[in-house]
Computed example of a mutant assay.
Amino acid sequence: MKSILSVVALISCVALTSAIPLLYDGRAPLNLTEADLDGSVGPYLTVVKGATENASHYSSLLGFSVPPTPLWDTASLVPNEQAISITIDNTSVFVPGSGGPQYGFRRTEFIAQANGNHTALNEVLDVGRTVFHFSIMRNDLLPLNYDHEYQIVFIEPSDGSHIFGIQLGSPFTDPTGTLPVPNAHSLKVLDHALNVIYTAPFTPLTWHNFAVQVDWANRTLCALYSPNAGPLGQVTEVVPNLSAPAGAAGVGDYHFGVLKLPLANPNDSPAEQADVVHYGIQEGTLEGLIYSGVFVEEASGGISIGDGLISSTICNSA
């Protein structure tokens, strides 16, 4: 199906990038600084991190050292954004406003915001049909432990569920099964009910480009994917996402980063083993991923698929 849908996408493209309303641009500008990250200045709210360190302890702006995904500026000699390294270590214990420290998780995440306000931005991003773009690269200097589950991109409404998510590693189970699972080294696109709707091998030295269209009124999803500079191609049908909350209850923050779930600890009580937020086994190692190409567009005029191209027919349910 992927090849057929990709051909359809290419046939329907026109080079009119201005036709797509850009709702949020999270592609880190070259003048963004790590002091901006520490202060949550600019396109990211950076408070989801370990409580003892600044955001720049866990995240780095890579400047010209690691070129960003080429998907959005293939004709330019100078990148128009910089890639971002996001890491976790044993201090990556987030302390939310209530519920106590999340000792079961290790997490560092950026949340989309505009003008210092993520809640107001959600009300713009989470209506109609919107497309969430992001590109992910392995950081083999700081490898992940694929025995664990990682949630690395998601939209999170107030009930803690994910409208859609990108998962790596071995999904958490209690008791822990055989690790790692066979597809642990694949990027998995999940719907709200945690069904896998697409997988792509997480190959090294590759930008893995994704776009996920969310139809908020009809509660559907549609995924696109490409490696490196290849144009995005549709890799799923328009699929129902009916378990997602409807209306205001489904509005949530757009996260990207590294959220590492624990392994169930056989020495914990059954209740503790089930409480993945506060209990479980974590090794405390330094691990990370690299991101670029993060933005959100309104889909009524089509979907940007790279290098100035737009498709007006992909991910249409009609």
Rank of each mutant, 00 (worst) to 15 (best):
W207E: 11
D215C: 00
V214M: 14
P182T: 01
G177I: 03
M137L: 15
Q213K: 15
S135A: 15
A200Y: 00
F134G: 12
T178N: 03
T173S: 15
P204I: 07
T206F: 08
A217W: 06
P175V: 07
I136M: 10
E149G: 10
P180T: 06
D191C: 05
Y198R: 12
W216S: 08
R219C: 08
Q151H: 11
V189P: 02
H162D: 11
N145R: 12
V189I: 14
H185W: 01
F134L: 14
Q167A: 14
D147H: 08
A223P: 00
A193S: 15
S170F: 02
N195D: 13
W216G: 03
E156N: 11
I163K: 01
T220A: 13
A184H: 01
Y225D: 05
P201G: 06
G165M: 11
Q167P: 01
A200G: 00
P171L: 12
F202H: 04
K188A: 12
P180A: 13
T173K: 04
P171R: 13
H208N: 11
A193C: 06
L142R: 13
N218C: 08
I152A: 12
R219F: 02
E149W: 09
I163E: 05
N195M: 09
T206L: 09
H208D: 04
I155Q: 07
T199N: 11
F132T: 02
G169I: 07
G169V: 08
H185G: 09
F172I: 13
S161V: 01
L205M: 03
L179Q: 07
D159V: 04
L205R: 01
V212L: 14
H185N: 14
P204G: 04
Y225L: 10
A223E: 03
L221D: 08
P182N: 01
I136C: 06
N209I: 09
L190E: 07
Y198A: 15
N209M: 11
L168I: 04
V153A: 15
Q213P: 01
Y150F: 10
S161I: 03
K188N: 02
L205S: 12
T203N: 08
G177R: 03
W216R: 09
Q151V: 14
N183Y: 10
N209H: 06
P180Y: 03
L142I: 05
P182Q: 03
P201H: 02
F172Q: 07
S186A: 15
T203V: 09
I136W: 02
V214D: 07
T178F: 03
R219Q: 14
P175W: 04
L205N: 12
